[in-house]
């Protein structure tokens, strides 16, 4: 019985994989675009773009700090655009 259930699980995993795999790349890229926009919103005040929500996004900074380096590279900036964030 247990073997049968394990096999069913395996078949379901394969089915899920069959659903996910062909579009994994496209979805990840779409998610990244959204995340990049989000980064821009969070860091906008520091780059001189007024953002009324910046007081509230302040507490997100430590969470996003680690991704900052990869983000500015993706945005085509070789060095950190912000003086006080020296990631590279």
């Amino acid at each position: 019985m247990k073997g049968g259930r394990g096999r069913l699980r395996r078949v379901l995993d394969l089915l899920q994989e069959f659903y996910d795999a062909p579009h994994r790349g496209a979805l990840a890229r779409a998610k990244q675009e959204e995340d990049d926009l989000f980064m821009l919103l969070v860091f906008s005040e520091m780059m001189g773009v007024p953002n009324p929500a910046s007081y509230h996004t302040l507490e997100l900074l430590p969470l996003l700090y680690e991704e900052f380096h990869a983000w500015h590279l993706r945005m085509g900036m070789e060095r950190s655009p912000l003086d006080h964030i020296r990631c590279c």
Binding site: L14, E17, A21, R24, G25, A28, R29
Partner: peptide, 8 residues
């Protein structure tokens, strides 16, 4: 984990 994923 996105484009390059070893697959059954």
């Amino acid at each position: 984990g996105v484009d390059f994923v070893p697959t059954n």
